[in-house]
Simulated assay, not measured.
Amino acid sequence: MIKKYFYKIYEKILGKFDDNDGKLLRQYYKKRFGVDVGKHSYGMDFSNIAQGTKIGAFCSIASGVKIGLMNHPMQYVSTNPFLYYKNRGVC
């Protein structure tokens, strides 16, 4: 629990010394969470983002959104991950 607060404080301090494009915070997110975050993107809850995910520049991520955690096959084009069911395939 103390570790969680330490990381929050560390992120705030890092943000204060960061330049306009958030380079230091983006490097921190890459190292700690394994997520590439583009310039000026915000709203990320890293517990809901899979490692190796790349988020583009100027993205706003709503709370509760899960990115890369669904088992959506990349060979199918869709904006809705609920079309694919592991046991039945594509519906």
Results as ranks from 00 to 15, higher is better:
1 M>A: 15
2 I>Q: 05
2 I>R: 03
2 I>S: 07
2 I>L: 06
3 K>L: 09
3 K>I: 12
5 Y>G: 10
6 F>I: 13
6 F>N: 11
6 F>E: 15
9 I>C: 11
10 Y>V: 04
10 Y>T: 04
11 E>A: 03
12 K>G: 01
12 K>F: 07
13 I>C: 08
14 L>N: 00
14 L>V: 02
14 L>I: 01
14 L>G: 00
16 K>H: 07
16 K>R: 10
18 D>C: 08
18 D>W: 13
19 D>E: 10
19 D>Y: 09
20 N>E: 08
20 N>H: 11
20 N>L: 08
21 D>M: 02
21 D>K: 00
22 G>M: 07
23 K>I: 12
23 K>P: 07
23 K>A: 00
23 K>C: 07
24 L>W: 13
24 L>V: 08
26 R>E: 01
26 R>S: 03
27 Q>V: 10
28 Y>M: 07
29 Y>M: 03
30 K>P: 02
31 K>A: 13
31 K>V: 12
32 R>G: 08
33 F>G: 01
33 F>N: 08
35 V>S: 06
35 V>E: 09
37 V>S: 03
37 V>N: 00
38 G>V: 13
39 K>P: 05
40 H>I: 09
40 H>M: 06
41 S>I: 12
42 Y>Q: 05
42 Y>M: 04
44 M>L: 11
44 M>C: 06
44 M>V: 02
45 D>H: 06
46 F>C: 05
46 F>T: 07
47 S>W: 04
49 I>Q: 03
50 A>Q: 15
50 A>V: 07
50 A>C: 09
50 A>G: 09
51 Q>L: 01
51 Q>M: 04
53 T>F: 02
53 T>H: 04
53 T>P: 00
53 T>V: 06
54 K>T: 04
54 K>D: 02
55 I>T: 02
55 I>M: 06
55 I>W: 07
56 G>P: 02
56 G>Q: 10
56 G>Y: 14
57 A>P: 05
58 F>N: 08
60 S>Q: 05
61 I>S: 02
61 I>Q: 04
61 I>V: 00
61 I>K: 02
61 I>R: 01
62 A>T: 00
62 A>Q: 12
63 S>A: 14
65 V>M: 11
65 V>I: 12
65 V>Q: 12
66 K>Q: 15
66 K>D: 10
66 K>C: 14
66 K>A: 02
67 I>S: 05
68 G>T: 00
68 G>I: 00
69 L>Q: 15
70 M>G: 11
72 H>E: 12
73 P>K: 14
74 M>T: 14
75 Q>Y: 06
75 Q>E: 15
75 Q>A: 13
76 Y>R: 15
78 S>F: 08
79 T>A: 15
80 N>K: 14
82 F>S: 13
82 F>E: 13
83 L>D: 09
83 L>Y: 11
83 L>E: 08
83 L>W: 10
84 Y>K: 11
84 Y>H: 15
85 Y>H: 13
85 Y>Q: 11
87 N>H: 14
88 R>C: 08
89 G>Q: 15
89 G>P: 14
89 G>D: 15
89 G>Y: 13
90 V>S: 09
90 V>G: 03
90 V>A: 07
91 C>F: 15
91 C>E: 15
91 C>G: 13
91 C>T: 12
